[in-house]
Nucleic acid binder design. Structure first.
Lengths: 71, 71
DNA sequence: TAAAATTTATCGTTTATCGTTAAATTTTAC
DNA sequence: GTAAAATTTAACGATAAACGATAAATTTTA
């Protein structure tokens, strides 16, 4: 899979903890942790929306496409 | 919902039709049409991956966060 | 105005988020 | 060091929604 999650990076930029983000986004910290550590294989736009809103960022800051094999 | 889909724009840039994209991505043209017209409320990374690969673009080119109310 | 392309509409199957709870692990603070 | 806090992992169920297939409707193209 070449889609990688970079929520960790944005959170670090904003110096926001998982629990704080969880409270403000309205998604359980368990599920945000999965998102943060790349343990999910899809995302609902409602969730992406809330995250982008709270972190004041764009989907592209959180989702990255990494081509597998470039030579 | 403030997450908007801009697949139409990338397809226009690449001058790629829905049917061609459908064949190359391996997703039915019906579902790609939904994606293109913003009729879905989530996306699987496997699908996003395939689209980014074929269109040679980033998730951020397809997904945009539009803050609802800025005053 | 006929053909092609796209969109919409159903329906069924399958996938996987998301919540909750609890346990395990890691990090932080003293 | 070690207790407390934070994060991650695990398991489970409920629910949401992608995705495929088919057909019909609509739009675009020629």
């Amino acid at each position: 899979m070449a889609i990688i999650l970079r929520l960790d990076r944005v959170m670090a930029d904003r110096k926001m903890s998982l629990n704080e983000l969880s409270e403000r986004v309205g998604v359980s910290n368990v599920n945000l942790s999965k998102l943060k550590t790349g343990k999910v294989s899809a995302i609902r736009f409602s969730t992406l929306d809330a995250i982008c809103s709270v972190l004041d960022c764009q989907p592209g800051d959180i989702l990255e496409y990494l081509p597998e094999d470039r030579q």
